[in-house]
Every structure is written in C-alpha cells, then in structure tokens.
Design a protein around this nucleic acid. Structure first.
Length: 271
DNA sequence: ATGGTTGTCATACAA
C-alpha cells in the first residue's frame, strides 16, 4: 500500500481551516501533521477537520502559541505527547497507526514543532535561543534513549532549522541568522544521524537543488525574491528508507489568499 | 544597519 503523509505549519488552524480543507481535498494525504495550531484544546475545530474525511484526530494546544495536531484517514493504535524542556507547551504529538491489517500498522509518526529561537543567536543574550538549543539537546537524548528510528517510524515537523547549504537562498548571508547558524545546523544533523533517521527530502532530492518550505511574511514579493528556507522536514527510519517514493513541496499554497508562511511537504511511501 | 508582516490577544509578544 501507499502511505502519503504531509506536514504543514498552519500558523493558526482556526484562521486557515478552509485552506486545510482545500489542501486535503487536492492532495489527499493519508495523514496530515499540523504545527502552530495556536488553539486551546477546548476551541480546536475537531468536527470541521473530521468533515474533510479525516475521522482520526489527535491534538494538543494552548492559548495563543504553539500547538500540534495529527489528522488521519487511518486509525491509531495509540498516541502520546512529549513534554520538552520541562515546559507544558505543545510541541510534540505522536501516533502509532494500527487497528487494521495493513502495511502501515505499527508505523509511528512523530510530529515536532521546534522553538524558533528568537533573533539573537547567542544563548547568553537570548533566552529563546537557549531554549531552542536545550530542545535540540533533549531531542538528541530522546533519539538515543528509546531508539525511535530503529523501529518503523516517520518524524515530521517544523524544525525551524535549515541544515544544509542549499536549504537557504544564501548560505553566506544566513550563517549568523537564527535557523542557519552552525551551532543549530550541526546539532540537528548530528542528532539526526546518531539516531538513525534519513532526511527524506534530501534522500530523493539531493543538493545542490535548492528546496524551501518557508518564505517570510516580511518579503514584499516572496515569489520573485524567493528568499526561502527549508525549515520543514520529513525524516524516516532506516527500515522505511527504501520505501520512500516521492517528496512534494506544495509551493502554491504560499500564494493563496491569507497564506501561512510555511507550505506543506508531502512524502509518499510504498509499504 | 534597519525595517519589513502576521496572528493572537489585548495593544505586547512570538514568529
């Protein structure tokens, strides 16, 4: 069977409910992982999302900030949410697919939203950057402790880091810009390789091809300037790497009315 | 070097 899984930082799920519906209708993924739902749990638009043909939904959110959700056409065997950095903010949720005798049963999907990290790339001067580095340290520890990539698993999300030279419009100009500083990019690549994850996007579309999934709202003409960054990622475990068939970045959603600053990334696996 | 935009919630803060 084919498993099609998408990840999208939606920047308010309530404001962009119709866009989620349009994307789901047009792309028809089996699973959609959302970040930055910016929605407390009691105001999450559960029924509206289910009505798009995704009866299985888990979510965790808070007022105003953060928040992650997973929508699925396939049922879940179980779900959990990790607490990172001793905080109650909603930056991870995972499910294990199951309850049906198909090839996707037993695949665990982790949906992460890594802190953006503020503007100043110095943990002594900027608490938000210190938080980001701490989050990466805990991600590394988590990747070694439970060895999540040693069983069939997919890790997606807004990792707020563009790790490679061709993941940004200008490597040199962004070396001291949060999201592309060496301390972040080296930490992310190290923890990914150590844990055994494959960078799914680059596995199918290696450098030097430029790949972006985010364009700043502050750019007056984002499409012409094309000063993007690849902040959104799909990682797959070793056992699932040969199953990777396709990666798609749905750039056109950035041109929709009232868009998110991130666009969906979709992976197709033949299981 | 600086300011540029958006969303949430209340007019500041995070991204």
């Amino acid at each position: 069977m084919k498993l099609k899984i998408s990840t999208w930082n939606i920047n308010s799920v309530r404001l962009r409910l119709a866009q989620v519906g349009r994307f789901l209708t047009e792309a028809r993924p089996d699973v959609l992982c959302l970040q930055e739902t910016k929605c407390p749990n009691d105001r999450f638009p559960l029924k509206d999302l289910q009505a798009f043909g995704y009866p299985h939904v888990v979510h965790t959110g808070q007022k105003g900030y953060n928040g992650v959700a997973i929508l699925s056409r396939l049922p879940f065997a179980n779900s959990e949410s990790l607490s990172m950095c001793g905080r109650t903010d909603a930056r991870h949720i995972s499910v294990t697919l199951g309850h049906e005798a198909n090839a996707a049963s037993g695949v665990t999907i982790h949906n992460f939203y890594v802190p953006a990290g503020g503007d100043i790339p110095d943990p002594k001067l900027n608490e938000k950057f210190a938080h980001k580095l701490q989050f990466l340290a805990e991600l590394r520890e988590w990747g070694g402790r439970g060895r999540p990539a040693r069983s069939p698993a997919i890790l997606v999300g807004d990792l707020n880091i563009a790790p490679l030279e061709h993941d940004v419009w200008s490597h040199k100009q962004l070396l001291d810009v949060v999201s592309h500083t060496p301390v972040e990019t080296e930490a992310l690549e190290k923890l990914r390789k150590e844990a055994g994850w494959t960078d799914g996007m680059r596995h199918l579309r290696p450098e030097p091809e430029k790949i972006y999934s985010w364009w700043s709202y502050r750019s007056p003409d984002w499409a012409a300037a094309d000063k993007g960054r690849r902040l959104d990622h799909v990682w797959v475990s070793e056992s699932l790497t040969p199953a990777l068939q396709d990666i798609e970045v749905t750039r056109e959603t950035r041109g929709w009315e009232r868009p998110s600053d991130h666009v969906p990334v979709t992976a197709t696996l033949e299981l």
